[in-house]
Amino acid sequence: MNEGPLGWAKFYRKGVGYFAFAMHRLSGLVIVFYLYLHLFVLSHLLSGAATYNSLVTSITYGPYDSFLVLDVLLALVIFYHGANGTRLALNEMGIGLKNHKVMFYFFESIAVVILGVFLYYAYMFIGAA
């Protein structure tokens, strides 16, 4: 019976592999959405530097600086997707297929460390600003 893509979200009580799969899809969609959003923002350069600067200022300063929180979430999603993607690529080549769960935890631990480094530098950047 076809559950449709919503079936992917039903990972409660399922295994780690199911969770990894569902989150990989979700994070992929978020990254694609961000890519188009990013291109949309960049497309304002076509209207001149003043328009672009005004847009960037409006979303990064003042009442809308909560976008920084979304930036952190985006980093989380990208690091998760990248780490799991690396695991999947290795699995595709037959490396670690028998230990895919251990590999998932290993690569996601690396992602958490990279996220920590990112957060540190992001904090320093905000502090400097």
Partner: peptide
């Protein structure tokens, strides 16, 4: 997409993902 749940769930120890 290598969720690997088939291998985890198999009661007879078959490894479909492999």
């Amino acid at each position: 997409h290598f969720a690997g749940e088939c291998t985890e769930a198999c009661p007879k120890g078959v490894d479909p993902s492999f």
